[in-house]
């Protein structure tokens, strides 16, 4: 399995390396202005220094804190509201128009008004991230809970399970594949909004640094932080995929 997987990744990785090499060559040949796009090797040097000096840790943890806190809060709210709307018709009728109103709105547009109320600190940033996370989770939970097989619910009832217990032990696990799919979408959004809110507030974290370096014309540094951000996104996805596979291990070979 392992070597096979490596083999499958190989063409893509080779292509990536080729692109970097071509870029390096193009910059050195003067085809691209070095001031705007330094060669990858120069970016690599900055990147290495940032990591080895430990300078990367502060901004990294600042951004990750926003992502994790906002993701956790938004997921809990999304699951709770989605399940309530699916389970209880009055909740659906009450909340559906509101949800449909806010859902299509790019949550990035909500950062400026939130700044008016919550300032530019972590509270505002985490709130923005949580808001962005809530809706995909909510909509998927709603669908997942609605789709739970009637037979499973009847099985719980005939064995004397109360509603609350059935919700927790039957409905939520049955809807879990949907809920996790929503959370996966939300994780990407969480990172986007975290970075954007850092840029808009000019405070802390990877987003702020990328903008700040660009404005200070520290172009190599800007690209180095960009690479770090890309790696963060990659790592978050991998972590989530791992957690998802563990949570849904029972699904492994269901046709």
């Amino acid at each position: 399995m392992r070597p096979e997987r490596l083999l499958r990744l190989l063409p893509g990785l080779a292509f990536l390396a080729l692109l970097l090499l071509a870029l390096e060559g193009a910059v050195n040949a003067g085809l691209i202005r070095r001031a705007l796009m330094p060669p990858p090797s120069a970016i690599w040097e900055v990147l290495r220094d940032l990591v080895l000096s430990g300078e990367v840790l502060g901004p990294l943890s600042a951004t990750l804190r926003l992502v994790f806190a906002g993701f956790a809060i938004g997921s809990v709210i999304g699951i709770a509201l989605g399940a309530a709307m699916a389970w209880w018709a009055p909740a659906y009728r009450l909340l559906e128009p509101l949800v449909e109103m806010i859902r299509p709105l790019p949550k990035s547009a909500l950062v400026p008004p939130l700044m008016l109320f919550l300032g530019i600190g972590d509270t505002m940033k985490i709130t923005s991230v949580a808001l962005a996370v809530t809706f995909p989770v909510l909509v998927n939970t709603l669908q997942g809970v609605r789709g739970v097989d009637r037979v499973l619910l009847d099985a719980a009832r005939t064995h004397g399970w109360g509603t609350a217990r059935a919700l927790w032990h039957v409905v939520l696990p049955a809807a879990l594949p949907f809920i996790l799919a929503g959370m996966r979408t939300s994780l990407g959004l969480a990172l986007i909004i975290a970075v954007l809110s850092e840029m808009l507030t000019g405070q802390g974290g990877l987003g702020f640094l990328i903008l700040d370096m660009q404005r200070s014309f520290l172009i190599r540094q800007m690209y180095a932080w960009l690479v770090i951000l890309a790696l963060v996104g990659l790592a978050l996805n991998a972590l989530f995929a791992w957690a998802e596979a563990r949570a849904l291990h029972w699904q492994a070979r269901t046709p």
Binding site: L152, D154, A155, H159
Partner: peptide, 14 residues
């Protein structure tokens, strides 16, 4: 206790 025709759907797959 009720036993369902669709055993595949009445057992909890997880």
């Amino acid at each position: 206790v009720y036993v369902f025709q669709q055993y595949g759907r009445s057992l909890l797959p997880w």
